[in-house]
């Protein structure tokens, strides 16, 4: 019955699993932040990861993106097991992430934040810088063209020469998303992309996420606002105390007593207040 608000997914999603985690466990000084989380993310979908504060959502994103290692469990991207691979190797497989608290590269300009993103650039090799300058220059122009188009789309074009550290909170959120998009990711992990931004910007970011989905990007986003989840997510994973409590469509989860007790009750109230 929520199909009215569901976007037509279409696109390249063929129901195959692009990101899978099995029994992921992580403890900090004996406290289990993640405790056996297991779920699949289906290619081409926008999946929400919800759960109360401290459920381990951010820790899980840190593990999945390689920013942290896990104690136990397995992670697969496509068919490849990538458990505890370093961050840069996971990124090169096409999994990009944003951070809950924006982490812009403050000393770089907005444009440079995007230009630095592509993996294994020819111009990062000093051999190429000195002996194949034309190749580097050509590649740079291609990056700049793409980056300026993206900044234009994300409404940051006029700020292109500003240092990223000078941006407002909402602008930093947009910058992080566009920086991740710069490399045409296969999977995008967004850690609360809409937290702390005003309602109009929430709409916009929602629009960007749907656009990304249309262009074939699989999105896993942590989101507290269930209205947003309702509007843009195909699938929901509920995490509580580091475990996967339930997965399914939001409408199904609303009928799951356990889920409502653990989480939805409070948030539905909070959500309708907004």
């Amino acid at each position: 019955m929520t199909s009215v608000t569901m976007p037509e997914t279409g696109g390249p999603g063929d129901g195959s699993v692009i990101l899978r985690c099995e029994g992921i466990t992580k403890a900090f000084q004996g406290v289990h932040a993640v405790n056996g989380a297991a779920f699949d993310v289906v290619k081409g979908q926008v999946t929400a990861l919800i759960g109360p504060n401290g459920a381990g959502k951010t820790t899980l994103v840190n593990i999945l993106s390689g920013s942290m290692t896990c104690d136990r469990g397995h992670e697969f991207i496509g068919g490849t097991e990538v458990t505890n691979w370093p961050s840069h190797r996971i990124a090169r497989l096409g999994l990009m992430r944003t951070f809950q608290l924006s982490r812009e590269l403050g000393g770089l300009t907005v444009l440079e934040n995007l230009l630095v993103a592509p993996h294994q650039q020819p111009g990062e090799s000093l051999f190429n810088v000195f002996f194949r300058p034309r190749l580097v220059k050509r590649q740079e122009r291609a990056y700049v063209e793409r980056a300026l188009d993206l900044l234009d789309t994300y409404g940051l074009y006029r700020l292109r020469d500003n240092r990223a550290g000078e941006l407002s909170g909402g602008q930093k959120k947009l910058l992080e998303i566009s920086r991740a998009v710069m490399v045409s990711p296969q999977v995008l992990l967004l850690d609360e992309p809409m937290a702390g931004v005003n309602p109009a910007l929430i709409d916009r970011i929602g629009g960007y996420i749907l656009d990304l989905q249309r262009s074939g990007v699989t999105v896993l986003m942590i989101e507290h606002n269930l209205n947003v989840v309702e509007q843009i997510c195909d699938h929901v994973i509920v995490l509580a105390e580091g475990r996967t409590l339930a997965t399914g469509r939001l409408s199904e989860l609303r009928q799951n007593e356990q889920v409502v007790k653990a989480y939805l009750g409070e948030v539905i109230d909070a959500g309708t207040d907004r």
């Binding site: 993106s65 390689g66 920013s67 370093p86 961050s87 840069h88 990124a91 090169r92 990009m96 992430r97 951070f99 982490r103 590269l105 403050g106 000393g107 770089l108 440079e112 630095v116 993103a117 592509p118 993996h119 294994q120 920086r179 490399v183």
Partner: peptide, 16 residues
């Protein structure tokens, strides 16, 4: 400079 500003971000962008 990206590494100088934030190592974790640089790694998440695929930098070794």
């Amino acid at each position: 400079r990206a590494i100088r500003d934030d190592e974790v971000v640089a790694a998440a962008l695929g930098k070794d």
